[in-house]
Design a protein around this nucleic acid. Structure first.
Length: 511
RNA sequence: GGCCCCGUAGCGCAGUGGUAGCGCACUGGACUUUUAAUCCAUGUGUCGUAGGUUCGAAUCCUACCGGGGUCACCA
């Protein structure tokens, strides 16, 4: 139940006074001829076409709408800045122009900062040089009852905006994203960039001849990754269902069906910890393409970043957390083994069993959980010694087989598979394989994976009989890729926390 | 889940055992070209919640709630 605070009480009283004076605080219809940006552009065009001459035609007349962001009452003349989705524009209000009744609403503070208003007038430029609307008609179109946090802005000579006062409490910002967006311009910019990144990705794959598809979110068997799923229940069918943890197995079935290139952008759900880089639901891109291997995937990835990064940032070079990252094609390529040799100064192939590798890691002075599979130990070394140092885009190639159940073996040994992950800015961006298409090998991998996990461990990848059935019909050789879009957006917007690229990050219940 | 830090006015913060403060916002007033407007004046609180210690608690202790960081797990 809402308990209005003192400021809200004041505004409730104002709304009553306005209604008593016959003002509708939330009228159903409004007029608008120009956005803020259009009105500013119209005046600039007018001034360019009609330099200061005595017989110039009258300036453009506009009706603009927006939220009041700043009020400056100055006796019988007042200034306001209103803001719509395109930007801010100043209103110049004189008692002579708008009439005493309306002007009294303003000076009587019945109109507040944060209210939405509509204003009509001809364009002008103030003595201080700011393009403004000389308002003749002015009215409230939506009253604000709760004041937004106050952030003042000063526009510098070079056009940059300095903000004074701030709305920075992260909990309130996440819980009340609407207020955060209304007040913090930079937050809006993050989500504009996010949308631009996703639409550029779609454009890229569409142009490359991929078919965008949608596969089930509710699945009777989860798979394609190692993660705990969310579980739900279909009442009528009396069916236990899982929210998908990846799209992989459903997308690859489509290659069997003759679709040579598919991609999906959507939500995955993983029932795991929440952190600065993990949210229980997150957005994933996966694509699969027939007749290429993981080297072909690398070529596509380089072209993908080569297209998308400039679409979002205007350049192939970006700055992430203080480091310049250059997405120009020709990314560095290094095998997992060489990367670990180089940064951890250990050749894990000298320890080809889990027992000996575990011992070797302990000999390096590291405390690790006992009994982990060999591939996990290799991954541990990579995470501890290598990952954070891969700032420039790098393909890390050839992963341990025992932690990669959907990738084809390399041709040079039995320990590795044709899998790579791409790293940039010290963060993993995506994961790709030469996809395994031998149904006999795939079945064995499912069985091997099951041995790695305790019985009942939800992380295990369940054996998916239907997936094997599809593969037995014949699956074309293919390469596939998956990327966490949120993390990519973090990089594109230089945000350290995934919560800052999600409009509504997951939170505990309030109180 | 473990450990560390945080929670005071609408927002940003100070106050660390003795009368709850500052800036902005808000409220009243002055000002017909201001722009972080300026000037004058007046208000503003379950100090996250519940217990405890104490003559006395925003302050010390305990538990709980919420947030952040970190470790574990992961994309």
């Amino acid at each position: 139940m809402w308990q209005p605070n003192k400021l809200e009480q004041e505004r409730l009283e104002k709304i009553q006074r306005l209604e008593a004076a016959g003002v509708q605080p939330y009228p159903p219809r409004i007029e608008r001829t120009h956005t803020a940006a259009q009105a500013l552009a119209a005046q600039e065009l007018y001034e360019a076409e009609h330099p200061d001459v005595p017989d110039a035609p009258p300036p453009p007349v506009v009706t603009v709408c927006g939220r009041i962001r700043r009020v400056n009452l100055k006796g019988k003349v007042s200034f306001m800045h209103i803001e719509d989705g395109t930007g801010r524009i100043q209103l110049f209000l004189r008692i002579n122009d708008v009439g005493e009744a309306v002007y009294d609403q303003i000076t009587g503070k019945l109109i507040d900062t944060d209210d939405f208003v509509q204003a009509t007038g001809s364009m002008m430029r103030t003595k201080a040089g700011e393009i403004s609307v000389r308002v003749t008609e002015f009215r409230l179109i939506a009253k604000s009852l709760s004041p937004l946090p106050v952030v003042k802005q000063q526009v510098q000579d070079d056009g940059t905006v300095v903000e004074y006062g701030e709305f920075s409490d992260v909990e309130t910002r996440y819980r009340q994203r609407y207020a955060d967006l209304a007040v913090n311009r930079s937050v809006r910019d993050v989500f504009i960039k996010r949308a631009r990144a996703i639409s550029a990705l779609r454009r890229f794959f569409d142009d490359q001849g991929f078919l965008e598809v949608e596969t089930p979110v509710l699945q009777t068997l989860y798979g394609g990754a190692a993660a705990r799923p969310f579980t739900t229940f279909h009442n009528e069918l009396e069916q236990t269902l899982f929210l998908r943890i990846s799209f992989e197995l459903y997308l690859k079935r489509l290659l069997v069906g003759g679709i040579d290139g598919v991609y999906e952008i959507g939500r995955d759900f993983r029932n795991e910890g929440v952190s600065y880089k993990n949210n229980p639901e997150f957005t994933m891109l996966e694509f699969y393409k027939a007749y290429i291997d993981y080297r072909g995937v690398m070529d596509i990835i380089e072209r993908m970043f080569g297209y998308v990064v400039p679409e979002v940032k205007g350049s192939l070079k970006i700055t992430y957390q203080g480091s310049e990252v250059d997405f120009s094609p020709g990314f560095k390529r290094i095998t997992m083994r060489d990367a670990i040799k180089q940064y951890a100064e250990i050749d894990y192939m000298e320890h080809p069993t889990a027992e000996s590798l575990e011992k070797a890691i302990r000999a390096m002075g590291r405390e690790i959980a006992p009994g982990q599979p060999w591939g996990k130990l290799v991954e541990y070394l990579f995470g501890e010694y290598v990952e954070k140092r891969l700032i420039q885009p790098t393909f890390v190639m050839d992963y341990p087989r025992d932690i990669s159940p959907f990738a084809k073996r390399v041709d040079y040994d039995n320990f590795h598979v044709e899998r790579f992950e791409i790293y940039a800015g010290g963060m993993e961006l995506g994961n790709a394989f030469t996809e395994l298409n031998d149904p006999r090998d795939q079945e064995q991998r499912f069985l091997d994976m099951a041995k790695l996990y305790e019985k009942g461990d939800e992380d295990e990848t369940p054996l998916d009989e239907d997936y094997l059935r599809a593969m037995r019909y014949g699956m074309p050789p293919n390469g596939g890729f998956g990327m966490g879009i949120d993390r990519f957006v973090m990089m594109m917007t230089d945000q350290r926390s995934i919560r800052d690229v999600l409009l509504y990050p997951h939170m505990r219940d309030e109180k």
